[in-house]
Simulated assay, not measured.
Amino acid sequence: MEKVTLIATATMGLEALVAREVKDLGYEEVQVENGKVTFTADVSAIPRANLWLRTADRVKLKIGEFKAYTFDELFEKTKALPWPDFIPVDAEFPVIGKSVKSQLFSVSDCQAIVKKAVVESMKKRHNIEWFDEDGPYYRIEVALHKDVATLTLDTSGVGLHKRGYRYLHNEAPLKETLAAAMIMLTTWKPERPFADPFCGSGTLPIEAAMIGQNIAPGFNREFVSENWHFIGQAKWDLARQEVEDMANYDQPLDILGTDIDHRSVDLAQNNAKEAGFGELITFKQMQVKDFRHRGKYGILVGNPPYGERIGELNEVERMYRDMGKTFQQHLDTWSVYILTSHEGFENVYGKKATKKRKLYNGNLKTDYYQYFGPRPPRQE
């Protein structure tokens, strides 16, 4: 098997970042569409993409794509795909599905037809009538969009945002993939201070530490495709060795996370220890109006409360006003990046953003307000 086509799925608004990450891994044949980045690569890209992609949701292996207006068409064209090349005789292969703007709108029927078609394809190759499905796990997805059916195998298993360090979290946790994206959209470099004044369970500071020391986000977890025969253990071992070789554990970092709630601070400290950054990240209990930092030319990234709940808006707006005064007075050399769904944020904060970008926090449309500070003086 020389080349495979992979799809790195992405939250709306993060596709360009995912594409940049894919190219940084050395893959050039990259196509960007809404919600996904498709690329062609050697099979070794499956372990590498799963281990390294910080902003993608999962990595899927594309088996085939075709137009399907009838159930017969879906069955015959699915059956013609090379399923036995990928799925072994003892595999467990459930089918999930989705359908958008397509004539075949019954997802359950599409799933059943695809399952039957794959079984028929496997029967023909292996010359047996019954599959016990008690071996490795290969989840098939049939995704119909405008009558085009895309058939994939999920290579990730649990979503890529599950890094393995956050066993506990607060009420509204920031997804790790979005946190990484927020940091990657800043001008932060590991030599500069980094701060999050609304650290919650510590996701932003921990993701910053991983980026700062070039630690692959998947270094501490497992993937469903690790025991797939056509990839092989050697490729996974090589990819994990690359992760170890590329990490810069000696890179010093100045990362601070603060929160008004002492329980969140305790939670963040525990998660940082789990990720291996217990000694590297500082956490403190602090109100945002009391936030201070001795460092210069730092990067502050925050995901404050949005005031979405009834009765919270006045309190949140008061905090935004305090935040604007504090940051402008005490962090005059810093760059500030704030994510919120509050459409009048700039007015309440007291300053127009240098730039803003639309991002989705779950299903909630938010804006990422970016306030650029002065550039640090060049080092001699």
Rank of each mutant, 00 (worst) to 15 (best):
G298L: 00
D250V: 10
K235T: 05
H262C: 13
K356S: 09
K60V: 11
K162Q: 09
Y165P: 03
W52F: 15
L204Y: 06
M184Y: 08
H145I: 08
L339T: 01
Q329W: 09
L359M: 04
M323C: 07
G373L: 00
P304S: 01
V348A: 01
D42A: 10
N50C: 08
K175G: 07
E279W: 14
P136S: 03
K98P: 11
K273I: 15
Y297W: 10
P205R: 00
L185K: 03
R192F: 14
P173N: 00
F345R: 02
A179M: 04
A208Y: 06
N303H: 08
F277M: 06
E279H: 13
G307W: 01
S44V: 06
R321V: 03
F194E: 04
T70E: 02
E380R: 14
V100M: 15
L160Y: 09
S108N: 13
M122Q: 12
E29Q: 11
V348H: 06
K162T: 04
P88N: 02
V119G: 01
K116I: 11
I128N: 11
P305K: 00
K273R: 12
P94K: 02
L331D: 03
M210Y: 10
N314T: 09
Y320R: 00
T326Q: 06
G276M: 01
V22E: 02
E171I: 10
A247F: 12
D322E: 12
T366C: 13
R125N: 13
A208H: 06
I96L: 11
N271E: 06
S108Q: 14
S99H: 02
Y167N: 14
G278Y: 11
N248M: 13
E343I: 05
M182H: 06
T55F: 07
L6A: 00
L104A: 01
L153F: 10
E28G: 12
Y27M: 02
A268L: 05
V100Q: 15
Q111H: 09
D322A: 05
A209Y: 10
L74T: 01
E222T: 10
G164T: 01
A117H: 09
I338E: 02
